[in-house]
Design a protein around this nucleic acid. Structure first.
Length: 642
DNA sequence: GAGCACTGC
């Protein structure tokens, strides 16, 4: 296998590109493939090429477009541009367009031939996001239909063979990365307490190694906060003559302001140690890091389709994760990587992490396939086919939501659901609300549910104060549950007119201000899609239909249309029993319904961490359930008789 | 009486 720098690969790539319809390019980080390859292709064919380059993340798409526009000395948005959700910096004349993979999928749904492009480049294919996997399947078919279309799949080293086999033996090119050497160290025997081992290794580096920042990977917030506290105790008592050390946490749920601290230079003769989740593995790059401590684990969300349950578990990383983490020490100079596991354990790791499509709910991918007319779901071009059980469970969910009919064909409602940028359950709730003329409040709630880390967990010291500030909004919900509380937050936020007032209020309630402004963007977009797909409805036609129900009750009933499967009945004590599976479930203590006794609940999330928890909980009337989903209740009752 | 990784339309 010959590896050359990108400039030397150029003529070879161009030859292969002209000769073959599909090329696979394997390049390590720092090879420049993401910026150079599109420019090489663009220079061919008298500049007539129209190139789409996909990225799994928004920032990457935007930054790459900016860099290539600079390199080609063109104005961003003209020859070189980008397109991500809420931001389009491209024109019909754009020759090189960087977009998120989700954006290309959306374009594909509107124009299944992708006629606007002559070349598609799928970058970071090794990350195996659900959307990249789907695109590969669609493109394999499209290449047979459009013989003027070309595809380049770009990936990191380890799994090129998988892509080569999928694309019937396409040729593979290798590009050398530009990286500094990183010295690896393993433990001689395994440790029990990973937090303690991380702290000890950090201090050892700090007292024994030249300057340069340290990046330590731990699985989650809890371990990270613990490590930061331990380090702070030690730092206070550092002997004289040892330079100062600053410990900083980094995870996605941390307020933006605190996240930004890891990028700031610390004044004086100080060393930074950043304790991070896998957010620092691919999403964020911190300069100045010379030392990496790899705890060897990460948290993985796994969907149990047999239980309808997500579990979030700490698992060993893969070799590919370990390589990526190690590489973070060698971006600017030679570095060192301390793996807090034995060399033997390393050899026991799997080479790649399980692709997303194998461990997530596939209701959304399958609805997408149905929308473009795929009838044989099991026999489709899956790069990795989900298990039959997972597919069957997704089909059942879609049937219960009335997105599919008895024959498994997509319904009119299913088509509307598939084009909304929401998971199918939320689409179902929103479309029901629209039909009833009460989309406004449901839009508020659905938008909140589409955003991660909106309502944050305050540090235990500040918890009581924050809860006190939140209390009026919970009281105002009249015991109707968390969805109504969310709406109360949005309404209050919107009633504040200046952004300064909004910021202050968010800070008091420990609500993420940036996420909240995102909620407003999403709401606007959903409203546009709703009107385009369904015509506008007037609220007044809802009055008769609902008789004496209050608006809040009507809102919950809309959600029940999407979440009939997420309901549970009261058991003695604090627990509930799920109607669908008969499993024991607890209300999460962060819920406004926690500690209250109600007959039945509906929840939008069912997740196992230390216990099985229901999150975003609303009390429901059993009568609503009987009216909305009699078939669901009777089917379950019958099944429970066996 | 918890405390949850990361993305994306």
């Amino acid at each position: 296998m010959l590896r050359l720098p990108i400039s030397e690969v150029r003529s070879d790539l161009e030859k292969k590109f002209i000769k073959n319809r599909i090329t696979i390019l394997v390049g390590e980080t720092g090879s420049g493939k993401s910026t150079q390859v599109p420019q090489f292709i663009s220079s061919l064919n008298n500049g007539k090429e129209r190139i789409a380059v996909t990225q799994p993340r928004r920032v990457a798409a935007i930054n790459l477009a900016k860099r290539v526009a600079e390199e080609t000395k063109t104005t961003l948005g003209q020859d070189v541009g980008y397109s991500v959700r809420f931001q389009n910096m491209s024109s019909p004349k754009t020759k090189i367009k960087y977009l998120t993979d989700g954006m290309l999928l959306r374009e594909l749904l509107l124009n299944t031939n992708l006629d606007q492009y002559t070349t598609i480049i799928l970058d970071e294919a090794h990350e195996r996001t659900i959307v990249t996997d789907l695109l590969m399947g669609f493109l394999k078919t499209l290449l047979r239909k459009r013989n003027d279309l070309r595809l380049i799949v770009m990936s990191a080293t380890l799994d090129a063979d998988k892509f080569r086999r999928f694309f019937d033996g396409a040729e593979v090119l290798y590009v050398q990365g530009r990286r500094f050497p990183v010295q690896r160290y393993y433990l001689s025997k395994p440790v029990e307490d990973i937090v303690d081992a991380t702290v000890r290794t950090a201090i050892q580096i700090h007292t024994g190694e030249p300057m340069g920042d340290i990046l330590a990977f731990l699985a989650g917030q809890e371990d990270i906060d613990k490590a930061v506290d331990l380090l702070n105790d030690i730092i206070e008592n550092l002997p004289k003559g040892v330079p100062d050390l600053v410990a900083l946490p980094l995870y996605a749920a941390l307020p933006q302001q605190q996240q930004l601290k890891v990028f700031e230079k610390v004044p004086g003769n100080k060393r930074k140690i950043i304790l991070a989740t896998n957010i620092a593995e691919t999403s964020l790059t911190i300069s100045g890091v010379r030392f990496v401590i790899d705890g060897g684990t990460h948290k993985v969300k796994i969907w149990r389709h047999d239980l309808g349950l997500d579990s979030l578990l700490t698992m060993p990383i893969s070799k590919s994760n370990a390589a990526q983490r190690m590489g973070r020490a060698g971006r600017e100079a030679a570095g060192k990587c301390y793996r807090l596991y034995t060399e033997n354990d390393y050899h026991g790791l799997r080479s790649q992490s399980e692709p997303e499509i194998e461990r997530c709910d596939v209701a959304f991918p399958i609805l997408t396939l149905k929308l473009v007319g795929v009838t044989d779901i099991l026999g489709w071009n899956w790069l990795e086919r989900p298990s039959k059980g997972a597919i069957l469970s997704a089909l059942t969910q879609l049937y219960v939501l009335k997105a599919l009919d008895d024959e498994g064909q997509i319904t009119g409602l299913g088509k509307k659901m598939a084009v909304l940028p929401l998971p199918p359950h939320l689409s179902a709730a929103l479309l029901d609300a629209h039909q009833k003329g009460i989309s406004d409040p449901v839009l508020d709630i659905v938008s909140c549910l589409s955003i991660e880390n909106l309502i944050m967990n305050p540090h235990p010291d500040k918890r009581d104060g924050v809860n006190e500030k939140r209390l009026p909004f919970i009281t105002a919900s009249g015991g109707m549950g968390d969805l109504i509380v969310l709406r109360n937050y949005v309404q209050h936020y919107r009633s504040l007119l200046s952004s300064e007032d909004r910021k202050v209020w968010c800070k008091e309630l420990f609500i993420n201000y940036r996420a909240m402004s995102n909620v407003e963007d999403i709401r606007k977009q959903l409203q546009i899609y709703l009107k385009a797909g369904n015509g506008s409805r007037q609220p007044e036609d809802s009055a008769d239909q609902f008789g004496p129900s209050t608006l809040n009750e009507q809102i919950i009933q809309c959600f029940l249309k999407g979440f009939v499967g997420n309901t549970a009945l009261s058991l003695p004590g604090r627990t509930y029993r799920t109607i669908a599976g008969g499993h024991t479930i607890n209300i999460h203590p962060s819920s406004s319904v926690f500690g209250k006794k109600v007959d039945a609940i509906m929840y939008t999330e069912y997740i196992f961490t230390t216990k099985a928890y229901a999150r975003n909980v609303s009390p429901i009337d059993l009568e609503w359930l009987q009216r909305i989903a009699p078939h669901f209740l009777s089917r379950r009752t019958a099944a429970n008789d066996y």
